[in-house]
Amino acid sequence: MIHETNDRNFLALLHQRIIDTESLLDVGCGPCLILDDLPYKHIIALDVHRPYLINRITNSGHILPLNADARLIGKLFVPKSFSAVSFMDSIEHFTKQDALDMLREAELIASKQVIVFTPRGFFPQDNVDHFGLNGEVFQTHRSSWEPEELERLGYEVTVMKGQHDQRNPAFVNTFGINHPPVDALLAIKNV
Rank of each mutant, 00 (worst) to 15 (best):
I54K: 15
D47M: 09
L66S: 05
K75H: 10
N59R: 11
Y52I: 04
R56I: 01
G61C: 01
K41I: 00
A70V: 02
N67W: 02
L64C: 04
I54H: 13
H49A: 12
L53G: 12
H49M: 10
L76H: 03
N55Q: 12
R50S: 13
H49K: 10
R71K: 10
L76M: 10
Y52W: 04
I73S: 08
K41E: 13
S60Q: 13
T58C: 04
Y52R: 06
L46D: 05
P51Y: 04
F77M: 03
L64W: 00
G61R: 05
H49E: 07
S60A: 15
Y52C: 06
G74S: 06
N67I: 01
A70M: 07
L53H: 14
L72R: 11
N55R: 08
P51W: 04
Y52K: 05
D47A: 09
G61Y: 02
T58E: 03
I54L: 14
S60T: 04
L66V: 10
N59K: 12
H42L: 08
D69E: 07
I73T: 05
N55I: 00
V48C: 14
H42R: 15
K41C: 05
G61D: 10
D47H: 08
L76D: 04
Y52D: 06
N67M: 03
S60D: 12
L64S: 11
F77N: 02
F77E: 03
D69P: 06
A45C: 11
D47I: 08
V48Y: 14
L46K: 11
V48A: 15
G74I: 01
A70I: 01
T58S: 15
D69L: 08
N59F: 06
A45F: 08
P51S: 09
L76P: 02
P65N: 08
L64P: 00
T58M: 05
I43N: 06
L72Q: 14
N59S: 10
T58P: 03
A68K: 11
I57N: 14
L53I: 09
A45H: 09
L66E: 13
R71Y: 01
R71T: 12
Y52M: 12
L72W: 01
I43L: 10
R56S: 09
I44D: 10
G74N: 07
A68W: 01
I44Y: 14
H42W: 06
A70E: 03
L46C: 09
G61P: 03
D69T: 07
N59C: 04
T58Q: 09
I54A: 13
D47S: 10
I44H: 09
D69K: 12
L66H: 04
P51G: 08
I73G: 09
G61V: 00
S60H: 05
I43T: 05
A45M: 07
P51M: 10
L76T: 02
P65I: 02
F77Q: 04
R50D: 13
I54D: 15
I43A: 10
H62A: 00
L64K: 14
A68N: 06
S60I: 00
P65S: 07
R50A: 15
D69Q: 06
R71H: 01
T58F: 04
R56K: 10
H62W: 02
P65Q: 06
I44T: 15
I63C: 02
